[in-house]
């Protein structure tokens, strides 16, 4: 079975001469939730736009479920749903009219029951006869999602779906995404809320300056790149770090009551044992300790910084 998405050597140079994508290779398996992270201007939206046929590729190919994305555009596009980053809606239309329009565009006959389900899932049913311009930003975002789901896509692109959405709505949205994933839909999302990727994604890709610099299982990534920290709450504050401990990657909190040791949890040795004995020798006592793992956000920030 061909993968959900197969991107090969995809490049895009805009008319301005700006190279927004540089030979991107990426394969996304069916049913996975792939989070694409990257700073502003990294090329996330450009990548999605090229795949969806909104921007012409300068080179390369994309296959959707094995179908070439321009030669077999009808089959390929029918599989794809897109929720764009910008809130582009038909202000004067009603919610149900615009969602029905989307379904029609994809060549499908009307299906009121299905549309009703989608609108209910997104808590839009009460608003179905409202004009879109009378809705709040978060609701408009949901209208865009409803439109993208109207033709029952198999591959769904969510370009920063939770930007400008309140906490509760965000949770609702993730419920919808989970349900879609459970029903077998492949989901590619971009987000700046890294905790989202951390919580939801199966794999994470990082893009900067039009190049994918990393693709990794989320868990493996966290394990591999995750630096851990051991935080010791000291029994008595220290004025400064004892001489014998300067070899360790230690930082003393300003108040002098907390010592943080940073180590690589995947390293051959963590150094914790020797640190402990050295601490005892130096006469430093602690009353509590805890370990912390880097968030995906930190990993991401480090990666992007390295690539610059």
């Amino acid at each position: 079975m061909p993968p959900a998405l197969q991107i090969e050597q995809l490049s895009k140079t805009y008319e301005s001469g700006f190279k927004a994508l540089n030979s991107v290779n990426l394969t996304i398996e069916r049913g996975e939730l792939f989070a694409l992270l990257g700073p502003n201007g990294a090329g996330k939206t450009t990548l999605i736009s090229v795949i969806c046929g909104l921007v012409r590729a300068s080179a390369g190919t994309v296959r959707v479920h094995g179908h070439h994305w321009t030669e077999e555009y009808r089959t390929a596009r029918r599989l794809i749903g897109l929720v764009p980053q910008e809130l582009t809606t038909e202000s004067f239309e009603t919610v149900s009219a615009t969602v029905n329009f989307s379904r029609g565009l994809y060549g499908l006959p009307k299906d009121p029951a299905r549309i009703e389900q989608i609108l209910k899932d997104l808590s839009l049913w009460e608003k179905r006869n409202s004009r879109i311009m009378t809705l709040s930003g978060g609701m408009k975002r949901r209208v865009l999602i409803a439109k993208a789901l109207a033709h029952e896509p198999k591959v769904l692109f969510l370009d920063e779906p939770t930007a400008g959405v309140d906490v509760e709505l965000r949770r609702d949205m993730w419920d919808v995404v989970r349900r879609l994933k459970a029903s077998g839909v492949t989901i590619i999302l971009t987000t700046h809320y890294i905790e989202e990727a951390e919580e939801m994604a199966d794999r994470v890709g990082v893009i900067t300056k039009g190049e994918i610099i990393l693709v990794e299982e989320k868990n493996a990534l966290m394990r591999k790149l995750g630096r851990k920290q051991l935080v010791l709450q000291l029994a008595e504050p220290l004025a400064r770090l004892p001489e014998s401990l300067t070899a360790y990657d230690l930082t003393l909190a300003e108040a002098g009551d907390e010592l943080t040791y940073t180590y690589d949890s995947q390293g051959e040795r963590t150094g914790i044992t020797t640190l402990m004995s050295d601490l005892r020798e130096a006469g430093v006592h602690f009353r509590d300790l805890q370990t912390k793992q880097d968030s995906l956000e930190k990993i991401f920030v480090n990666l992007v910084r390295q690539s610059q």
Binding site: C52, G53, L54, Y73, R74, T75, A76, R77, R78, I80, L82, P84, E86, T88, T89, E90, S91, S102, L105, Y106, G107, K147
Partner: peptide, 17 residues
């Protein structure tokens, strides 16, 4: 109008010739 508002994206990305 759809070009101006950006809603044309939907037509351009749909399986429509």
């Amino acid at each position: 109008f759809p070009r101006f508002t950006g809603t044309i994206f939907e037509v351009l990305s749909s399986p429509v010739s």
